[in-house]
Simulated assay, not measured.
Amino acid sequence: MSNILNSHPYAPSSLSIPHYVPNERSTVELLFIAGGIMTTLVGMSYAVSRSQLSKNTTSTARFTWFAICGLMHCGFEGYWLWNRAMIAGQNDIFAQLWKEYAHGDSRYLANDELLLTLEIMTIVNV
């Protein structure tokens, strides 16, 4: 008989994920929300670059690329660092995105120390 407290869709099924609650939104909904957020961020970065920097296409592309990378590393990954122990039990949009991401690497919901170290290094090196 499976323990209801450890009932989750992640591999391995024996992985302990305390306080896990399923996402309220479907994968498709989360994909559209994340796509909308990214489109908005890219558009804003592009607009700032075109209005404040040179009109050079290469400069604009570089600024946009680095702005998105910085926002992703410091914002999205920073959210994981700050909330990593509670994400499995939360259903705000970033928690749901991380739970969806964890289908590919369940260590993100298991408080893996290696991932903690790697994410800290990623944010510090931005």
Rank of each mutant, 00 (worst) to 15 (best):
S2H: 07
I4K: 11
I4Q: 06
I4L: 10
L5Y: 13
L5R: 12
N6V: 03
S7D: 12
P9H: 01
A11G: 08
P12W: 02
S14C: 04
L15V: 07
I17P: 00
P18Q: 02
P18Y: 06
V21Y: 00
N23L: 01
R25M: 15
R25T: 00
V28F: 13
E29S: 14
L30Q: 02
I33W: 13
I33M: 12
A34S: 08
A34L: 08
G35R: 11
I37H: 03
I37E: 07
L41D: 03
V42N: 10
V42G: 08
G43A: 15
S45K: 07
S45I: 03
A47E: 07
A47C: 03
S49D: 03
S51Y: 10
K55Q: 15
N56K: 01
T57G: 02
T57R: 13
T58Y: 07
T58N: 06
T60C: 10
T60Q: 14
A61C: 12
A61I: 14
R62Q: 09
T64D: 01
T64C: 02
A67S: 15
I68F: 04
C69I: 13
L71T: 09
H73G: 06
C74T: 12
C74P: 06
G75P: 06
G78C: 11
W80L: 14
W80E: 12
L81Q: 06
L81C: 06
W82E: 09
N83P: 05
N83G: 04
R84Q: 15
R84S: 10
R84I: 07
A85H: 14
A88G: 08
G89W: 04
G89L: 03
Q90F: 01
I93P: 01
I93D: 05
F94G: 12
A95T: 04
Q96E: 14
Q96I: 04
Q96D: 05
L97Y: 04
A102Y: 06
A102R: 08
H103K: 15
G104Y: 11
G104D: 08
G104N: 13
D105F: 11
L109T: 01
A110L: 06
E113G: 11
L114P: 00
L115Y: 13
L116Q: 10
I120D: 03
M121S: 11
T122D: 13
I123D: 05
V124P: 04
V124F: 09
V126G: 13
